[in-house]
């Protein structure tokens, strides 16, 4: 792990290729090297798509186990990172779909409990961390929109690379990203309106008390 993090990028590429070959030969130390380079990116991607730290940790392990199983299929036509992102995104979306299906099934059978009287959220508690707020915002988007925004905004991938990861045309990336950003903006504005509204209400209550 430390081997990768302390090596400059230009030296990492040949080392990475050697690690891929070792991994293809079934050597675990090759996988360990790749884990050192990519675990952070894979984990971040899984976390942002799934929105749950424990699930993302589990998913990161799963992705690297899959990598070890399927590395024989990597033929070097795309860059290794693109191939790995593709593996990670596909498996993470599958997991998300399974989870969504399960929760929708549960909703069919389990009658929701009576909702408690709704209190105005203490926004200092709810929004104590910007990161949490953004994750909530991201989780409110559809899986497709979430994924494309994670790849573009958080992972910083270009349109061509995103197209390769998602297996779609570059034009599709452009239009999907446009719709995803529109949706993100809409949710964000809604959230801002909600904050403004609750602030106004609490001020009114305070004024009444006074």
């Amino acid at each position: 792990m430390s081997e990768a993090s302390s090596t400059p990028r230009e030296n990492v590429v040949p080392l990475e290729q050697a690690a891929v070959r070792r991994c293809q030969g079934g050597e675990i130390d090759g996988l360990e090297f790749l884990y050192g380079i990519y675990a952070e990116r894979v984990f971040r991607t899984c976390l942002r798509i799934l929105g749950d730290r424990a699930a993302a940790e589990d998913q990161t392990h799963e992705v690297f186990l899959r990598l070890f199983e399927q590395i024989g299929r990597f033929d070097g036509r795309s860059s290794f990172s693109t191939w790995l992102y593709r593996l990670a995104v596909n498996h993470t979306l599958n997991r998300l779909r399974r989870r969504n299906r399960r929760s929708s099934k549960l909703r069919e059978f389990v009658r929701p409990a009576e909702a408690p009287a709704r209190e105005l959220p203490d926004r200092h508690v709810l929004r104590k961390e910007e990161a949490d707020r953004v994750q909530v915002l991201l989780s409110s988007l559809s899986p497709d929109h979430r994924t494309i925004l994670v790849l573009r905004e958080i992972e910083g991938l270009g349109y061509a690379e995103i197209a390769e990861v998602l297996g779609v045309a570059k034009g599709t990336v452009m239009s999907r990203l446009h719709r995803a950003r529109q949706e993100l903006k809409r949710r964000w504005l809604q959230e801002l309106e909600g904050i403004a509204c609750s602030t106004k209400m609490s001020k009114r209550r305070e004024a009444r008390k006074a």
């Binding site: 984990f43 971040r44 990161t60 994750q135 915002l137 905004e153 958080i154």
Partner: peptide, 13 residues
């Protein structure tokens, strides 16, 4: 907002 969030790097397992 998302780009800023991207900078908060969580510790991988």
């Amino acid at each position: 907002l998302l780009r800023e969030e991207g900078r908060c790097v969580p510790e991988p397992p």
